[in-house]
Amino acid sequence: MKKLAVVGFGLFLSIACHAQDSKRESVQELLKATNVDSMVDTMYSQMGQAFAGIGQQLGIKAEDQPVFDAYMNKVFATMKEDMSWEKMEGPMIEIYLKHYTEKEIRDMLAFYQSESGRSMVEKMPAVMGDSMALSQQMVQSFLPKVQAMAEELKTDLQKHRNSQ
């Protein structure tokens, strides 16, 4: 009886491991179908463009620009190395395995393999780029308001301190 239980448990573990491997393969296929690796590359490219304007925002002087550029290049290179798709892929697969059922993964995969899904994947970098540009525009119009509120707070705090 003990041998039968051990064999049964071993068979159960084998089936469970195979199911997990199958689900993992489906997630890998889904990530490939959605071009996540190239989306990461596109994200870094867009971030590189955003980094280019940081010097102006920080008031970097022309004579200091080469030092600043070298620093930003080093930061960007380190970020790309430490956060490469090769380092992200395994943890991303685990996240998908944790949050989605095998049926949900198969359904998503079916969508992304469809004509509409492929179109979405193809157009997503442009949508993300436009969304990022919109966000930057909104932040640019928002920052002066925050700066004005910060000055107001500074003045109000000073008045409060002087009144005590």
Rank of each mutant, 00 (worst) to 15 (best):
G90T: 07
V139E: 05
L157Q: 10
K145G: 15
N35P: 01
L30W: 14
K98D: 15
F9N: 01
A126G: 06
D107Y: 02
L134V: 02
N73K: 10
S14F: 09
F76E: 12
E152G: 10
V67Y: 04
F111G: 10
L11T: 05
R161L: 10
N35V: 00
M92F: 09
F142W: 15
M128T: 05
L97Y: 07
Q65D: 03
H160Q: 09
K32G: 00
Q137C: 00
A148E: 15
R106K: 15
L4Q: 08
G129P: 04
L157F: 14
L58P: 04
P144W: 03
Q65S: 02
M39G: 08
S26E: 12
D69T: 06
S14C: 13
Y100V: 13
Q147S: 09
A5D: 03
K74P: 00
F142R: 10
G55M: 06
K87Q: 07
L31C: 04
S116C: 02
F142D: 05
M39T: 05
Q49L: 15
E115C: 09
G53D: 11
S114C: 13
K3G: 08
L13K: 02
Q49P: 02
I15C: 08
P144K: 03
M43H: 02
E151D: 15
H160Y: 14
M149K: 15
S116W: 00
T42S: 13
G10P: 02
S84N: 08
E122M: 12
R118K: 15
M83V: 05
L143W: 07
E63Y: 04
M88T: 03
P66T: 01
E29I: 06
M1I: 01
K80Y: 01
D107M: 00
S114T: 08
H18I: 10
D107H: 01
S119E: 15
M72C: 05
F51C: 00
K159H: 09
M149W: 13
Q164G: 06
G117P: 07
C17S: 11
D130Y: 03
Q137W: 07
L134P: 02
Q28L: 14
E122W: 07
E102M: 14
S116Q: 13
E152H: 09
F142N: 05
D156S: 14
S141W: 11
I95F: 11
G53E: 12
F9T: 01
E152T: 14
F12M: 14
L30V: 12
M92P: 03
A133H: 08
A77G: 07
G53Q: 06
L58T: 06
I95A: 12
Q49D: 15
E115Q: 14
E115R: 05
M108P: 00
K145S: 11
S38E: 11
E94R: 07
V36C: 08
G117F: 04
G48Q: 12
